[in-house]
Amino acid sequence: MSDQRERVGLVCPSCSTTEPTVHEVLNPGGAATVRCTECGHTHKTRIPEPETVELDIVVSQDDESFSTTMEVPADTYTEVGGEFIVDTPDALLQARVTGIEVGDERRVEEANVEEIETLWTRAIDNVSVKVTLHPADGDRETTRALTVNVPGDYEFEVGKTETFGTEEFTVEGIQIRENAPEYRFDKLDHSGDVAFAKDVKRLYARDETSTAWSAW
């Protein structure tokens, strides 16, 4: 069985009286029993509660948004593109940071939470992906739009045929969102290129729906 004990940084009266070392919490409580991982010394001490700050968060979901607040550790650092859990009164949401507003309504790419006035985010648990479809005959002058709703970690692959209800299409290109990490290009169009739905701004696809372009 793996060791699931909490670990904290504390001074050790045996081997480090000035600089914190990593301690295992053997018995939590007001006067917790802890063991230094450097020298093995066990002693009792009070574990300080971490300082927190109240963070104002705006969460965008599709075409709507709402505001909430969260208590977070004061030493937290965040950056555009980072992901975290937003704890709201109604639900827990996985969100990605899309904007960080500090003093004087200034936007920055990264900041400590103590500096942040408002954190702008986008929910990525479940997402709506816009699709531009063109006919199978290649006539790009006649296109139609479609929106599909999928989990954020759903994978779209260039060259793969997707089916959603009565809709069927083959992915030909994937436009990546600005704040999506770990993609070499902002447009994927080589067979086998893959992107998570939460990172997709738009899909470009060939319509395979048999009745989509039938005559009247």
Rank of each mutant, 00 (worst) to 15 (best):
S2H: 08
R5W: 00
R5P: 05
V8E: 05
L10Y: 00
C12S: 04
P13M: 10
S14L: 12
C15P: 08
T17N: 10
T18M: 09
E19D: 02
E19W: 08
E19H: 13
H23W: 00
H23I: 00
V25E: 02
V25N: 03
P28S: 04
G29Y: 05
G30P: 03
A31D: 11
A32D: 01
R35A: 15
R35Q: 14
C36H: 07
C39H: 08
H41P: 00
T42D: 02
H43G: 03
H43I: 04
H43T: 07
K44L: 15
T45E: 15
T45M: 11
P48C: 07
E49N: 02
P50E: 15
T52K: 10
E54R: 15
D56W: 03
I57W: 15
I57E: 10
Q61Y: 13
D62Y: 15
D62N: 13
D62Q: 12
D63T: 13
F66A: 03
S67E: 12
T69C: 03
M70T: 01
M70S: 14
V72F: 05
D75C: 05
D75M: 11
Y77G: 06
E79K: 14
V80D: 00
V80A: 09
G81S: 06
G81A: 07
E83T: 15
I85R: 11
I85C: 02
V86L: 09
D87T: 12
D90F: 04
D90T: 12
A91G: 01
A95G: 11
A95Y: 07
I100D: 01
V102C: 05
G103K: 11
G103A: 12
D104S: 12
E105W: 06
R107T: 06
N112A: 10
N112L: 07
N112W: 12
N112F: 11
E115I: 08
E115N: 13
I116W: 05
E117S: 11
T118P: 00
L119Y: 08
R122K: 08
I124L: 08
N126G: 03
N126A: 07
S128P: 00
S128A: 14
V129Y: 09
K130D: 06
L133M: 09
P135S: 08
G138C: 14
R140T: 10
R144Y: 09
V150T: 13
V150M: 09
P151W: 09
P151F: 08
P151Y: 02
G152D: 11
D153P: 11
G159Y: 13
T161C: 04
E167Q: 15
E167S: 14
F169C: 05
T170A: 09
E172F: 14
I174Q: 03
E178M: 05
E178A: 12
N179Q: 07
N179R: 08
A180V: 04
A180E: 01
A180G: 02
P181S: 06
S191Q: 04
G192W: 13
A195S: 14
A195F: 07
A195P: 00
A195C: 09
F196Q: 15
A197S: 06
K198G: 00
R202L: 11
L203Q: 01
L203Y: 05
Y204A: 01
Y204D: 01
Y204C: 00
A205K: 09
A205H: 06
R206W: 03
R206A: 02
D207E: 06
T209W: 13
T211F: 14
T211L: 10
A212N: 05
A212H: 08
A212P: 14
W213D: 11
W213L: 04
W213Y: 13
A215E: 13
A215R: 10
